Every structure is written in structure tokens, then in C-alpha cells.
Amino acid sequence: MAQERLFGMSFARIYPLYVAKVERKGRSTEDLDTVITWLTGYDRAGLDAAIERGVDLQTFFAEAPRMNPDASLITGVICGVRVEDIEDPRMQRIRYLDKLVDEVAGGKKMSSILRGQPVSRPA
């Protein structure tokens, strides 16, 4: 039941929480957007459209232009669960994003967060 509630949460509601978290730790919204676009393939216009439309997290990831094939390199614990062990692909994508946001907020280098790929800022 809790999973279904999470899937139904609006990305527009979650995004400002991510922004507040990274800014509180001295990182920028641009850093946040970089990891979101790296993971999902959205560009800035796509993120803005998803926020404006109020899509839920399930739809946000279902409509993602291109999930990064290196997302499987994201490992670690979120909410007491190892992200690499999550069996539901929908939940795993949400937790991948949570893990990336934590890494940004934790001050990790962007090249490391992006699993060695070059940093390109969202257009």
C-alpha cells in the first residue's frame, strides 16, 4: 500500500523537496537537474513540463525519454534497503533518484555521481 502511495505522489511535490535538500547542503538546483537528466533523459523543458502537468512519479519515470543504462551502477542504501536489490523496477527507479539526490547533497563529486560520465548541464 505504501508503494502505491509513493508511485502516486506528484513529481511537482517532490521536486521542491529535492531542491531544498541540495541547497541546504550548499549545492545548486543545476546540480540536481544534472543528475535528474542524467538518470532519465529529460531536458530542462521536459522537467518543467512534468512539473507543470503534475505527473505522478510512476508516470514521470514511465515517460522518461531514456533511462540511463548506467543506472544499474547506482548502489547503496536508501530507506534501509539496498537499491541494487529492489525487485520492482518502478520502485528501483524512484530509489535511484533518491540515492543520486543524497549523493549531491552529501557533496560527492559530480563525475562520481554520474558514474564516470562527463558532466553535461541540462539545456
Rank of each mutant, 00 (worst) to 15 (best):
D70Q: 09
R66H: 13
D102S: 13
T29R: 15
V35I: 04
V83G: 04
S72I: 09
R82P: 11
A71P: 03
V35C: 06
K108T: 13
R13I: 08
M67Y: 05
P69R: 09
V22D: 03
V55Y: 08
P69G: 06
K109M: 10
R95S: 12
I74M: 02
V101C: 09
K109E: 15
A105I: 11
K99Q: 14
D98P: 09
R24K: 14
L47Q: 07
L39W: 01
S112F: 05
V22I: 00
S111N: 12
K108V: 14
I51R: 14
D85W: 07
P16Q: 05
L57M: 14
L73P: 00
T40Y: 05
S72E: 09
E63W: 08
V101K: 08
T37G: 05
D98G: 12
L39E: 03
R95N: 13
V55N: 01
F61H: 08
F60C: 12
R93I: 02
A64D: 07
L114K: 00
E30R: 14
E30H: 06
E103S: 12
P65M: 11
K108D: 10
E63R: 13
I94Q: 08
I86W: 00
D98R: 10
A50W: 00
R66G: 07
I36S: 02
V101Y: 08
R53I: 00
D70A: 11
P69H: 02
L17Q: 15
D98W: 13
G106M: 10
R82K: 14
T37R: 04
V22H: 07
V35F: 00
G46T: 04
V35D: 04
S72V: 13
W38G: 02
Y42L: 06
D85Q: 14
L17T: 12
R95M: 15
E84G: 09
A49K: 14
V81C: 10
D98V: 09
E23D: 00
V22M: 07
A105M: 11
N68S: 10
I113H: 04
P69T: 04
A45T: 11
I86Q: 10
D98C: 12
M91T: 09
I113D: 05
K109T: 07
D88M: 00
M67T: 11
E52S: 13
G46R: 06
A62D: 15
P69K: 04
W38R: 02
L39P: 04
Q58A: 12
A105R: 12
D31L: 00
T75S: 06
I86C: 05
L97I: 09
T34L: 01
L57N: 08
G41F: 04
S111P: 02
I78W: 14
T37A: 12
T37H: 08
C79G: 11
R66A: 15
T37N: 07
V55C: 05
D88Q: 01
M110S: 06
D88F: 00
L57S: 08
I113V: 07
I86A: 03
A64S: 14
S111G: 05
K108M: 15
V101N: 09
L17R: 13
E84L: 02
M67A: 10
L73T: 00
T40A: 03
G26C: 02
D88A: 00
I74G: 01
K25H: 15
